[in-house]
Amino acid sequence: MGFLDLPGLGKAHYHEYGSGAKPLLAFHGYGMTGKQFHVLEQSVLQDYHVYGFDHFFHGESKLTNWTEKQIVNGMPKATVAAYAEEWFKVHGRQRFSVMGYSIGANIALILVELYPDLVDEVILMAPDGLSVYKGFHFLTYQPVGRFLFRQVTKSKWLAPSLLKNLKKINFIDDSLYQIAYNEIDTEQKRQDVYYTLNLIRLLKPDIHKIAQFINQHPIKCRLIFGKHDNLFPRIAAEPFIALLDKPDVHEVALGHWLVVKQLDEYLVNLPR
């Protein structure tokens, strides 16, 4: 474990694990920490030494002297470079790979965009960032959505009621309902949801540029989706997949809750 001092942001905490020699910078999904990928012990961790970063408002990572207005305005995309540059200061400038699950895929993809000549492989699981997710876009960009999002996080009953209604009209399934409900059952959790989604609202990967870099260098690209994922399904990523020369695409019999033992058992049987 360790910390990186990211200029203009704060202290980013990371966890180290894995028996492999190749460095892998990893970014987890909402409500988790950088330890999330520890379950992939038979597959990914055999090949890589993972540096799993806690997102801000998760684990031990802390923003420094940011006001609520700054948080709501969002973290500038250019600041993602600090993750790599500060990591280089500790471990030396070298080639590395990236991995991201769900919202963590945004940072992983932007690092590919910024350092295509240094990235060996990108592993994405149920990734955000490959298309516009209308729900997040509404909550963090549209004036009405931003107002409602703020009001919901301040209320003890609005968030649970909203989730129940979204489930009732099949906008979200039972698994997503359970995941979301567990993240809004206290005032602190609701605030963290609000801050997290607003902080990352500007982290939009340029998928055309990234696909061009992946093909040009070339960078190995593995994409993993849950067959029953209603949040970030494979179909939403098809335009990006179509841009790649040699995509390594997989669908597993899981939902959005993808980083589990069953995934490790699936990956360990794939060619390395």
Rank of each mutant, 00 (worst) to 15 (best):
D5I: 14
A12H: 01
Y14M: 01
L25M: 00
T33W: 00
V39G: 02
V39E: 05
V39I: 15
L40G: 02
Q46H: 04
Y48W: 15
G59H: 10
K62V: 12
V72H: 06
M75F: 00
P76Q: 08
K77C: 09
A82D: 02
W87E: 01
W87A: 05
W87F: 08
H91E: 13
F96G: 03
S97C: 03
M99K: 01
G100C: 08
Y101M: 04
I103K: 08
A108R: 03
L109P: 07
L109S: 14
L111A: 12
D117W: 14
E121Q: 11
I123L: 15
D128P: 10
L130Q: 03
V132Q: 09
H137Q: 08
H137R: 03
H137M: 09
F138Q: 07
Y141N: 15
Y141R: 10
F147N: 11
F149G: 05
R150L: 08
R150T: 02
S155D: 04
S155E: 10
K156M: 15
P160T: 10
L166N: 07
Y177W: 05
N182E: 11
T186R: 09
K189R: 11
K189Q: 09
V193H: 09
T196V: 11
T196H: 00
R201D: 04
K204Q: 14
D206C: 07
K220N: 13
K220H: 15
K220A: 13
R222S: 00
G226C: 10
G226S: 01
F232P: 03
P239F: 13
A242G: 05
L244E: 05
V252Q: 05
W257L: 15
Q262S: 14
D264S: 08
E265N: 09
L267G: 00
